[in-house]
C-alpha cells in the first residue's frame, strides 16, 4: 500500500465506528472470554473432571454384583447432591471465574482493554457471563449424562416426566450454584493475588466446617442456600456434613425456604460482582500491577 492509500484509510472520520451500546460491549467481552476459556488446557481438564460422575452409575450397572444395589434415582440424587453441587460447581468457579480479571493483569494485556471505550463494568460482566455459559454447559451436560447413565439402573427413566423434571430441577440448582460461586471467585480474583488458594480454603474448607458447627454460622456459606434449593422429595439425604444430633436439630430449626435461598444467592452474587466492578473501576492498572490496590 502506498502513502496515499494509507492516508486515505486513516483520514476517514466517518469510518470511525459509532458509539457502542452497553449490551454490545458486554457481548464483545463475553465472546472473547468464551474463546479464551475454550482454548485453554484448563478447559479440557475441567471438562474431564466434571464428567467423571457419569462413570459411577455405569460402573454400578455393569460391574457391580451387589444384590441390594441402590436404585437409579437414589444414585442420581446422591451424585448431584454430593458431587455436582458441593464439589464440581465450586471447582468450575475456581477454574474459570477466579482468573477472569486476574489473568489480564498477570499477562499484562489489561492496558489494551482499558484503553477501549468500554465501561469497566461491561468488561467484568461480559467475562462473568462467559464463565457462566461455559461452566453451566459443562455441569449441565455432566448432570444430564449422569441422569442418562443412572437410567440404566432401576426406578429412573429417560421418558418419565417426573424424572425429567427432577433433572431440570438439578440443572437449575447447578446454575444458581455456579452463579454465586462464580461471583465469589471473580471477587477473589480482583481482591487477592492467590484467588484459587483462598477459594479452596473458603469453598472446601470453611463451607464444610461451617455446615457441621452447631449454630447459625452455616448462614455464612453459599452451600446453605444451594442445598435449600434441592428437590424436597428427591432428597434421599445421606448428608455427611450434618454429623451431630445437635447439628441436625439446629439445621432443621434454621431451615431456609427455596424462595429466600434464591434471593440470598442473587444478593450474594450482586454484592460480589458490584464490589469487583467498583474495585476494577477505581484501580489503576498500568501494566502488571494495580496501583492503589
Amino acid at each position: 500500500m502506498n502513502h496515499d492509500e494509507t492516508s486515505a484509510l486513516l483520514l476517514r472520520p466517518e469510518a470511525r465506528p459509532k458509539r457502542a451500546g452497553y449490551v454490545n460491549a458486554v457481548m464483545g467481552s463475553a465472546a472473547h472470554a468464551v474463546t479464551m476459556i475454550m482454548r485453554r488446557k484448563r478447559f479440557a481438564m475441567a471438562a474431564i473432571i466434571a464428567f467423571m460422575p457419569v462413570l459411577i452409575p455405569l460402573a454400578l450397572a455393569f460391574l457391580s454384583k451387589a444384590a441390594f444395589a441402590d436404585e437409579g434415582n437414589v444414585i442420581f440424587v446422591r451424585l448431584c447432591e454430593q458431587l455436582h453441587m458441593p464439589v464440581l460447581a465450586p471447582l468450575l468457579a475456581l477454574f474459570f471465574a477466579s482468573m477472569l480479571v486476574a489473568e489480564d493483569i498477570e499477562t499484562q494485556t489489561i492496558p489494551y482493554v482499558l484503553t477501549r471505550p468500554l465501561p469497566r463494568s461491561a468488561w467484568v460482566l461480559g467475562r462473568f457471563l462467559a464463565y457462566l455459559l461455559v461452566a453451566t454447559t459443562i455441569l449441565g451436560l455432566s448432570i444430564t449424562m449422569t441422569f442418562a447413565a443412572s437410567a440404566t439402573l432401576s426406578k429412573l427413566s429417560l421418558t418419565n416426566t417426573n424424572d425429567l423434571l427432577l433433572l431440570g430441577h438439578y440443572i437449575l440448582v447447578a446454575l444458581a450454584a455456579l452463579t454465586a460461586y462464580g461471583a465469589l471467585a471473580v471477587f477473589l480474583g480482583v481482591f487477592t493475588k492467590r484467588p484459587i488458594v483462598y477459594g479452596v480454603l473458603l469453598l472446601y474448607g470453611w463451607q464444610k466446617i461451617a455446615m457441621i458447627i452447631p449454630g447459625v454460622v452455616d448462614f455464612l456459606t453459599i452451600s446453605k442456600y444451594v442445598e435449600a434449593l434441592y428437590p424436597v422429595l428427591a432428597t434421599q439425604r445421606n448428608v455427611v456434613e450434618v454429623q451431630t444430633a445437635l447439628g441436625t436439630f439446629q439445621k432443621q430449626i434454621f431451615a431456609v425456604s427455596a424462595t429466600r435461598a434464591v434471593v440470598m444467592i442473587l444478593l450474594v452474587t450482586a454484592v460480589f460482582l458490584v464490589s469487583s466492578i467498583v474495585a476494577v473501576r477505581r484501580r489503576e492498572y498500568g501494566t502488571g500491577r494495580a496501583a492503589g490496590s
Partner: peptide, 22 residues
C-alpha cells in the same frame, strides 16, 4: 504481551470487539 494462542488478525479483531464493534 498478547493473548495466548492468538493470530495477529484475531488479536486486532477481539480488541475491536472490546471497542464495541459487532
Amino acid at each position: 504481551n498478547f493473548y495466548d494462542n492468538t493470530t495477529g488478525f484475531e488479536f486486532v479483531y477481539w480488541l475491536n470487539r472490546y471497542w464495541g464493534m459487532g
